[in-house]
Design a protein around this nucleic acid. Structure first.
Length: 191
DNA sequence: TAGCAGATACCTT
DNA sequence: AAGGTATCTGCTA
């Protein structure tokens, strides 16, 4: 593995950061009100992969991340799936198919995959590609907002961020729950 | 309708 | 083989 690049930008009320390889493949993305937390998460990953610190230099994908946060559509990004498990990979294929403005549930993904909802939650929680793989579009079966961690601890703030992201994408809410009309049912695994 | 376990759970290291 | 879990369902009151 060659050298990695780390780029951060601020936008809205967050810091956004990406870690990319020499071929512009995304290894990890993170966003948080604290720039230090973003940097820590990305440098930790880089160190694990290369044993060295990544080079700090601007990268367009960081800007793209802000666009995603604003609810805009961006070009397809190539992800480096070398450091995730096959199960995570399968789960993320489903996440990437959830249309903007829709949501699905942990249980529905589990059913489609013939796995269990808690296992799916486990994989979703460890998504290394915040925003690029839209894990915020997965909610509990009671259609409440559910949990979100933003590469940190689960908190009220991060869950509010999840709700805000969904609202930006046009998901209708009522009494703190998404409307059933926005549910998207995942199809069976594709070959 | 809110709270609480069980699921012979499911995946990861 | 143990440990973690961003869940779901049905049963209780």
């Amino acid at each position: 593995m060659g050298s990695l690049k780390l780029s951060t930008v601020s936008g809205e009320k967050f810091w956004f950061g990406v870690l990319v390889d020499e071929k512009d493949r995304l290894l990890e993305s993170a966003f948080n009100p604290s720039r230090k937390k973003v940097m820590d998460s990305l440098t930790r990953r880089a160190r694990k992969v290369t044993g060295t610190r990544p080079a700090l230099q601007p990268h367009p994908l960081a800007r793209e991340m802000v666009n995603l946060y604003k609810g805009r559509r961006v070009r397809r990004v190539s992800l480096d799936a070398q450091y995730i498990t096959p199960f995570q990979n399968r789960v993320y294929q489903y996440l990437r198919r959830i249309p903007k403005g829709r949501v699905t549930t942990y249980g529905m993904i589990a059913e489609a995959m013939k796995s269990g909802p808690r296992a799916v939650g486990n994989a979703v929680a460890t998504n290394p590609w915040s925003l690029f793989v839209p894990c915020h579009r997965v909610v509990p079966s009671d259609l409440s907002v559910g949990n979100y961690s933003m590469n940190g601890r689960i908190s009220h703030d991060s869950c509010a961020t999840k709700a805000a992201l969904l609202e930006k994408e046009g998901v209708p809410f009522q009494d703190g729950k998404v409307l059933g009309s926005s549910l998207w049912k995942p199809g069976q695994a594709r070959p």
